[in-house]
């Protein structure tokens, strides 16, 4: 009995976003179907994966993570180069030191570090602030200026600070991460506010505030699925690619941090921790993630290998 393949007739697609400048560009988005359903529509760009670099040495990363970056953790430039060696499509530079609880680094200093990193690697950068909304606006404004014209991705913009960051992105030619706390209406609203300031829709990336496997992954998973369906059914204010800042979530969990000795019933720590990061990413790829920020180079390698397979055609 012949089966009639069930295909949805979607009316819209996810915007395609270009990051970086020629010849070192990364394109994401552009899908006209649900993730990896090549039998139904186009998925012109594979999900891209970034590794994270901090502007100061992390103090609470587990050994299996720090050992992968031995000798470079106090030097963001060397660290970023290492990430590129490991095969990262992009480098995600996080200005952790700008936090008042850390070094309260000035926006000018942050901008210098960002410039040094940008000039040292041939992949586009994602540049994140320290999470304090007011400070991030100041930091990202300076970063945008110092890296004018490089077409990087800056974030995270929230309801509170999006105006400054959006303006800086418009003036200096960058893209923005619009961040909302697990809420599809707030997500959409922020995209509207940003586009109303005249930043083009294909310069916005959605950050739904993902959790790690076991720590609320299902909320972000469903919001991402709803976002993708919204995009495909014609809602232009949801038709932006989604970034999953998952490394920072995964490496907080006790499943990633507990050593083999502390939790023998959970198996070998290295394998478990890598799998925690890979499994989180795999699930979000199924929900519609386009840009993934991870921490461990082995997770990156494994996740990329997984994506290689999923990018193969499954048309009937």
């Amino acid at each position: 009995m012949a089966v009639t393949i069930a295909k949805e007739r979607w009316t819209n697609k996810v915007a395609e976003v270009v990051l970086g400048t020629e010849p070192n560009i990364v394109k994401i988005g552009g899908e006209s179907t649900l993730p990896f359903l090549h039998f139904e529509g186009e998925m012109p760009n594979r999900p891209a994966v970034a590794l994270e670099v901090w502007d100061m040495e992390p103090t609470n990363w587990p050994e299996i993570l720090t050992s992968a970056y031995a000798g470079v953790l106090n030097d963001p430039v060397a660290w970023a180069k290492k990430c590129v060696e490991y095969g990262a499509d992009l480098v995600c530079l996080t200005m952790v030191s700008a936090h008042p609880d850390n070094k309260n680094t000035s926006p000018e200093e942050c901008a210098q570090v960002a410039k040094a990193v940008a000039d040292a690697v041939n992949v586009p950068l994602i540049i994140l602030g320290c999470g304090i909304e007011e400070k991030d606006a100041q930091v990202l404004e300076k970063v945008a200026e110092n890296l004018s014209g490089r077409n990087f991705l800056l974030g995270c913009a929230t309801q509170e600070n999006y105006k400054t960051i959006t303006a800086a992105c418009i003036v200096h030619g960058h893209n923005i991460i619009a961040s909302s706390p697990l809420d599809i209406n707030l997500e959409k609203q922020l995209n509207i506010l940003i586009t109303e300031m005249n930043l083009a829709a294909n310069r916005i990336i959605i950050d739904p505030s993902v959790g790690a496997l076991g720590y609320g992954i299902e909320y972000a998973y469903s919001i991402m699925e709803r976002t993708r369906i919204g995009a495909l059914t014609g809602d232009k204010m949801m038709a932006m690619p989604v970034i999953c800042l998952l490394g920072q979530e995964v490496w907080k969990t006790k499943e990633a941090k507990s050593t083999t000795e502390e939790a023998p019933e959970w198996g070998n720590q290295e394998r478990r921790a890598i799998l925690w990061e890979v499994t989180t990413a795999v699930a979000f790829a199924q929900a519609g993630g386009s840009l993934f920020v991870m921490r461990h180079p082995e997770s990156l390698k494994q996740f990329r290998a997984h994506i290689d397979k999923l990018m193969q055609s499954n048309t009937y």
């Binding site: 496997l213 609320g216 299902e218 070998n268 799998l275 499994t279």
Partner: peptide, 20 residues
């Protein structure tokens, strides 16, 4: 049957099958 492989999968199953 390695617990390091099974724990993430069991956790994912729990998350995906949680009643929203």
């Amino acid at each position: 049957a390695d617990p390091a492989d099974i724990l993430p999968l069991i956790t994912l199953r729990l998350n995906i099958y949680t009643d929203p």
